[in-house]
């Protein structure tokens, strides 16, 4: 396997995350521990090489915070919805598998959208088609074509939110053009 050199800038989020995990597990954020953690993070990143995650090169914190809160609210709603469905409908619940074509072709965004989709109300990713970047989503309590269309719209809105946070500039302008027209 040929290794593509990754720039330090591209690797930095991973290293920072590893240091945070290290310090959190030791419950010790002293400079010495952080430095040792950084050393181990670099060593781990060199020895256990993973294909680099291609970041979009931008991160919009102003968009990320409302998205995070919105996400938390949706997780709460999802949990109570599942509780309600389990008690009220149980074995008679109707669901559907819906194909949702995504705008973005970046692995990071498809994965992030899949993750968020799996945690918000009534949807679960069954299959990912990477070549066409299509998510096949299993929706609970999807009784007819209208519900399916709504589910598709929800997933695409989630993706739009993620593009606004960390998509590339090209994806962002494509999104804005689509919404304007």
């Amino acid at each position: 396997m040929s290794r593509k050199r990754i720039s330090l800038r591209q690797e930095l989020p991973l290293l920072v995350w590893l240091v945070i995990v290290w310090a959190a597990l030791w419950q010790n954020f002293s400079p010495g521990n952080l430095l040792f953690g950084a050393l181990i993070a670099v060593l781990v990143a060199r020895l256990f090489y993973l294909p680099p995650v291609e970041l979009g090169g931008r991160f919009n914190l102003l968009r990320a915070v409302p998205f995070g809160l919105h996400f938390l609210a949706k997780v709460v709603a999802a949990s109570f919805q599942v509780l309600f469905l389990a008690v009220a409908k149980g074995p008679k619940v109707i669901s559907a598998v819906v194909a949702v074509p995504l705008r973005s072709h970046s692995d990071l965004l498809v994965t992030a959208t899949g993750h968020v989709t799996a945690l918000i109300p009534g949807s679960l990713v069954v299959e990912v088609d990477r070549s066409t970047s299509t998510l096949y989503v299993h929706g609970i309590n999807v009784r007819n074509a209208e519900d399916a269309a709504q589910l598709r719209k929800d997933v695409r809105n989630t993706e739009a939110g993620l593009i606004r946070i960390m998509g590339t500039k090209a994806e962002l302008s494509a999104l804005n053009q689509e919404l304007d027209s």
């Binding site: 509780l83 679960l124 609970i140």
Partner: peptide, 30 residues
């Protein structure tokens, strides 16, 4: 209560997919 919801869901839902809904969502919030 959320863990209870997951348990009720696992018992009540008809097939694997719907049970996965019960196993994932209330779990995270709980």
């Amino acid at each position: 209560l959320m863990s209870l919801a997951a348990a009720v869901g696992l018992l009540r839902f008809p097939d694997l997919m719907t049970r996965m809904h019960a196993a994932t969502k209330p779990q995270v919030l709980g």
